[in-house]
Simulated assay, not measured.
Amino acid sequence: MPPDALLAILGMAAVTFAVRAGGYLVANRLPASGFVAAWMRHIPGAVLAALVAPAVVAGGPAEWLATLATALAFLVSRNLLAAMAAGVVAVYFARMLLGG
């Protein structure tokens, strides 16, 4: 392995460890209730929506059907993992059937 590649891998590992360790240190100091706690609980959903929304807006019928299937699966099951699985399966079959 070239020394440059090894150095890059070690550098990325160090940065990843520092980010995670910093997160653990900061998390212990965050309030368990109040505005900040409520705000922090909503971050994962907001990030997920920010990642998915551009694909839905720029997509076609297959993506729109998958979005509908995902929303319906979540409303029925109230399980995020089940909803995501339903969306992945729905977009796969919709693309197969619609040629997307």
Results as ranks from 00 to 15, higher is better:
A18G: 11
P31S: 14
M40P: 00
G59L: 03
W39I: 07
T70M: 06
L51A: 10
P3Q: 01
T70D: 03
A32G: 12
L30K: 02
A46M: 12
L68F: 15
P54I: 11
L10I: 07
L72G: 03
E63R: 00
L72A: 11
A38M: 12
S33A: 14
V36C: 11
V91M: 12
A82N: 04
P3F: 04
R78D: 12
I43L: 15
L72Q: 03
A37M: 03
V19D: 07
V57M: 14
P3I: 02
H42W: 04
L6A: 13
Y92S: 05
V88N: 08
R41G: 11
A58L: 14
G11A: 12
G23C: 01
V91H: 13
F74I: 11
G45E: 07
P2W: 11
L7K: 08
A58Q: 13
V15D: 09
G45T: 03
G23K: 00
L80G: 13
R41T: 07
V52F: 12
A5S: 09
P61L: 15
A69E: 09
W39K: 04
A71Q: 02
G23T: 00
N79Y: 03
M96A: 12
P54A: 13
A62C: 03
L65K: 02
A94Q: 00
V26T: 13
N79Q: 05
M12V: 10
G23H: 00
V47W: 13
A32E: 14
T67K: 05
A94R: 01
G87H: 00
A69Q: 11
G59Y: 09
S77M: 04
L6C: 02
V36S: 13
V36L: 15
G59Q: 05
G100S: 07
T70Y: 06
R41H: 13
A27G: 03
V26G: 08
T16K: 04
Y24G: 10
A90M: 05
N79F: 03
A53W: 14
A21K: 01
A55S: 15
A58I: 04
G34T: 05
P61Y: 11
A27L: 01
A8Q: 04
V76S: 11
V36D: 12
S77W: 08
M84Q: 05
A38S: 15
A73Y: 04
P3N: 01
M12I: 09
P61N: 06
A82C: 02
W64G: 04
A14P: 05
A38Y: 14
P31M: 10
T67N: 09
A83I: 01
V52L: 13
A73W: 07
L97I: 07
G99H: 09
V57L: 14
A27Q: 01
V88M: 11
A58N: 13
L97S: 09
F17L: 00
V47Y: 11
G87Q: 02
P61E: 06
A62R: 00
A13Q: 06
P54C: 12
P31V: 12
